[in-house]
Simulated assay, not measured.
Amino acid sequence: MAIVRRKCFISYHHADQDEVSQFVRSFDHEQDAFIARGLGQEMSEDIINSTNTDYVMSRIRQLYLGDSTVTLVMLGKCTWARRYVDWEIQSSLRQGESTTPNGLLAIKLPSYEQGQKDFPDRLNKNLKQNDAQEDCYARWMAYPSTTDQLVNAIEAAYQRRTTHRKWIVNPRDRMGYNRQC
């Protein structure tokens, strides 16, 4: 059976660029597990030159999120503190009459410290918080050890776009500034 390669928007903190680039090289370029969309060395060459954050977010939605179906949040030590990661997750979770949200899957990078529990707040809001909650929208995983493991997790996130969208938590407020890590 052929693998369906989903278009995945890659959200990450640029301090983790080397690990993210290795992830994209390994799983997109070499293993064909997904099609990477986003900003970075291993992805598109399109650069958005502007200091206007509304314009930048609009262009990211148009150029990268618009044709992606799953957002992969690459978790490093300080990912939780980055405003652009929050904004990208917020854009990914948008839904409406003619808008289907992206599936949301977080992946711990190899440098993610053992025992660390700092996820971006908007991601946390979409993860199961306690036993009282029936289910949730997002999932997280350790760094994949096989291509099949990653493909299955991406496909599950893709399916949750319709089967679990009622559990999306996406407040309108967004992070104004990066936090201290």
Results as ranks from 00 to 15, higher is better:
L109A: 02
I89E: 01
N124E: 10
K128L: 11
G96Y: 10
I89P: 00
Q90P: 06
N124W: 08
Q114P: 09
R94A: 14
I89M: 03
Q90D: 12
R94Q: 15
R122A: 07
Y112R: 00
Q95H: 12
P110W: 08
S92I: 06
W87M: 12
Y112P: 00
W87A: 11
S92H: 01
D121N: 14
T100D: 13
L104T: 05
P110S: 09
L123T: 01
L93T: 07
L123K: 03
R122V: 09
R94W: 12
L104G: 04
N124S: 13
N126Y: 01
K108I: 04
S91C: 11
R94P: 08
P120I: 01
S91N: 14
S92W: 02
Y112V: 01
I89A: 00
N124P: 05
K125R: 14
E97N: 15
T99I: 12
L123A: 03
K108Y: 06
N102W: 01
T100L: 13
P101V: 06
T100P: 08
Q90T: 12
G103Y: 04
L123Q: 04
K128G: 13
K125E: 11
S91G: 11
S111L: 00
K128N: 11
I107M: 04
E88C: 02
N126V: 01
S111H: 02
K117L: 12
